[in-house]
Lab assay of single mutants.
Amino acid sequence: MGFKLLSKLLVYLTASIMAIASPLAFSVDSSGEYPTVSEIPVGEVRLYQIADGVWSHIATQSFDGAVYPSNGLIVRDGDELLLIDTAWGAKNTAALLAEIEKQIGLPVTRAVSTHFHDDRVGGVDVLRAAGVATYASPSTRRLAEVEGNEIPTHSLEGLSSSGDAVRFGPVELFYPGAAHSTDNLIVYVPSASVLYGGCAIYELSRTSAGNVADADLAEWPTSIERIQQHYPEAQFVIPGHGLPGGLDLLKHTTNVVKAHTNRSVVE
């Protein structure tokens, strides 16, 4: 069995187990497998329904001669939608809004960016022009300005110390501490036991640490421990890039980060 097929099978099995364990909360999309990078042309966006009122959005972007996937989250909030992270750029984010209108038909009224990198804030200006209120932590807003990236308009308070959590509509926002970046936030959907790890969490097929220019490698494993301790009931975990899975993604990420750190020390 090929690795790609095995990865998709694991996603399907995880979703099936969740649907059985929580039949009222989960209505997993039966329309197909989780979209992969090879299936999404740059400039297009796919939506994948995880649970009743919960979707991931998947886009792709060219970077350094390669094409990478990027995940975000959409959560229903009454007759409105909360968006977590842009679709990595203005063109993708405009396509995301169009796809949401086509498939869901509810307005996106608020959006949260989970850290300051372009795959999370690139497209904020498109959201703002569409009347979406954009939010991020003060740290993310400051770092985005320093980096020359787009800056969300509103500040999220109460997320300055490791372990801080605040309720934001249908989700809980959690600051686990520094990891992929010093400002990275985690998003949890309690009604569906869905954990969105953003770039602080890796997919299972990833074996290298990737972009760690703004990471705190020493603190990252401790931050992941905080996530595990705060959300032990999480059933569906979405990484910032690639295929979702279960809580095993947290341990896998820790292993990859520690291996990278150990290699760096040896070198």
Results as ranks from 00 to 15, higher is better:
T254E: 13
I104S: 01
G89V: 03
T134H: 02
N255M: 10
H115F: 02
L81N: 01
G65R: 09
G158F: 06
V126S: 06
S223Y: 04
P107A: 10
A15P: 14
Q61T: 09
A209V: 10
S193G: 13
G148S: 07
L5K: 15
V112K: 04
E233T: 12
A129D: 13
T114L: 00
L217R: 04
A259Q: 12
T254K: 13
A95E: 10
K8S: 12
E44M: 12
A215C: 05
A21V: 14
H180W: 01
K102W: 10
I227Q: 03
V11Y: 08
R76G: 07
G240H: 06
G210Y: 05
L250Q: 00
A90E: 13
R46P: 04
R46K: 10
A209Y: 05
D52N: 12
A59D: 05
V237W: 03
D77N: 07
V42I: 07
A21I: 13
Y231E: 01
V212W: 05
V189Y: 05
V187Y: 03
Y231R: 00
A111E: 13
H154P: 04
V189W: 01
E219D: 07
T134D: 00
S208T: 14
D85V: 01
R141V: 08
L106E: 05
L217M: 11
G246Y: 05
Q61W: 07
A136N: 03
G242T: 05
V54A: 06
V75N: 02
S193R: 14
S62P: 08
E101K: 14
H230T: 12
D118T: 09
G123V: 03
T261D: 12
G177Q: 02
H241L: 03
T140E: 04
C199R: 03
G245C: 05
E225W: 11
D64R: 08
V132S: 05
G131T: 06
D248P: 08
K258P: 05
I238A: 00
L47A: 04
H117R: 03
T134S: 06
R76D: 06
F168G: 01
E225A: 13
H115D: 01
K91S: 15
E44N: 13
L83I: 10
D64A: 13
V266L: 14
K258N: 11
V108N: 03
T36Y: 12
K91C: 07
S16W: 15
Y34S: 08
R141T: 05
D64C: 05
M18F: 13
V124N: 04
G163K: 05
D119Q: 00
P35R: 07
L13A: 14
L81V: 10
P23C: 13
V257Y: 03
Y231I: 03
N184A: 00
T109Q: 10
C199H: 03
L250P: 06
L249H: 02
T254R: 12
M1W: 04
A87Y: 02
D85A: 01
S205D: 13
Y12R: 10
V126N: 04
A15E: 06
L217K: 03
D216G: 05
F174D: 01
E80D: 09
L249K: 00
P152W: 00
S191L: 08
Q49N: 12
S139E: 13
H115Q: 03
G242Q: 01
L9G: 12
R128W: 07
V237C: 03
D77K: 05
D248W: 06
Y48H: 12
G89S: 06
T153P: 06
D118I: 06
V166K: 09
G210P: 06
A87I: 01
I40T: 11
R46F: 08
V237E: 00
L6M: 13
L127F: 06
G163L: 04
T182I: 11
L250N: 02
S113E: 03
S208I: 12
I100N: 04
I40G: 07
Y68Q: 09
